[in-house]
């Protein structure tokens, strides 16, 4: 089965609440595709539709030749799904969980050991431990092993790195890269923008809509306007003082600095204006540097356009 995914005009609403609005998306076979967006963006709903757990209100989804509604049995057999919530049996041991998931897919740990070897060797020392007693990172690795045990062509991972420490997160992404080399199509969602750069392509999602779908680098390149990183001696009040600036589109905290975007053509003129404003507010050690946007900046800019459009429509 080829595992390219075609999502056509998919909408989903739960009673009054609209979770997905007219989603169109194509994911190629063998791609490592990221779905980026804040909580409540509709990522989980989209994944559940792809795994046939939830029916779309409207639209169609095809995975290869298969329709996820009509051919849900075949879809389920060829898809590995790791739900957002830890969904293994915490009263069973690591080994028992794996054996159980292997057997409900009519396979065995031995048969597909090679496939999950890279992950499993990391958790093997704890195989007699109950899943509930594992650390967050270990739990996710076990869950990934369970989702992979039946050698699916497509794996769908719902926020696998949420609540996991930075080191485990990197390890986890390395594992995903390895899986991709084996020819699997990988669909992963995350609220962490920095993970977007690790995907082949990403979709930025908010309020049930796709804001952009492209390679991470292309999304960054398409960033319009100039971005500046500002810092000064008193970071606490800096944010609110910067918000009072004229000619400024966006102000948001970014790590150690505050990112602002300019509304005017000349960068030098803008820097001068900002500097003047901050000096008049009594700041010292002012640093204003032009900087290159990352995914998060793009996402926030796109969100801004989105809300502006909405305001106009209303």
């Amino acid at each position: 089965m080829s595992a390219d995914i075609n999502i056509t005009n998919v909408s989903k609403s739960y009673n009054e609440v609209v979770a997905l609005k007219n989603i169109n998306l194509t994911i190629d076979n063998g791609e490592l595709f990221g779905l980026i967006g804040p909580d409540g963006a509709g990522k989980t709903t989209l994944f559940r539709i792809l795994t046939s757990l939830v029916l779309p209100t409207d639209g169609e989804v095809h995975i290869g030749e298969l329709d996820v509604v009509k051919d849900y049995k075949k879809v389920r057999r060829n898809t590995g799904y790791m739900p957002g919530r830890f969904s293994l049996y915490s009263d069973l041991t690591v080994e028992e969980n794996l054996n159980f998931y292997a057997s409900i897919f009519n396979t065995s740990l031995k048969e597909n050991y090679d496939l999950i070897k890279d992950i499993y060797i990391q958790i093997e020392p704890y195989k007699k431990r109950r899943a509930g007693d594992l650390s967050g990172g270990m739990k996710q690795k076990l869950a990934l092993s369970c989702a992979l045990i039946h050698s699916p062509q497509l794996i769908i991972l719902d926020e696998p790195t949420t609540g996991v420490d930075a080191v485990s997160r990197m390890e986890f992404w390395e594992l995903l890269k390895k899986m991709q080399k084996r020819g699997m199509t990988i669909l992963v969602s995350t609220p962490y923008m920095d993970e977007a750069a690790l995907c082949d392509r990403v979709a930025l999602m908010q309020n049930g809509k796709l804001l952009a779908v492209d390679k991470p680098q292309n999304i960054v390149n398409s960033y319009k306007g100039s971005l500046f990183a500002v810092s000064a001696n008193n970071m606490h009040s800096l944010l609110s003082d910067l918000e009072k600036l004229d000619n400024t589109k966006q102000v948001f905290r970014f790590g150690e600095t505050i990112h602002i975007t300019s509304n005017i053509e000349s960068d030098n003129q803008y820097i001068e204006e900002v500097n003047k404003h901050l000096v008049s507010c009594g700041y010292n050690n002012i640093s204003i540097k032009k900087t290159n946007p990352v995914i998060e900046d793009c996402f926030l800019a796109l969100m801004d356009i989105e809300t502006e459009d909405k305001d106009k429509a209303e």
Binding site: R76, Y81, S87, F105, N106
Partner: peptide, 9 residues
Amino acid sequence: TMEALLVSP
């Protein structure tokens, strides 16, 4: 865990 069981065959 029902979610995981349901996606199985």
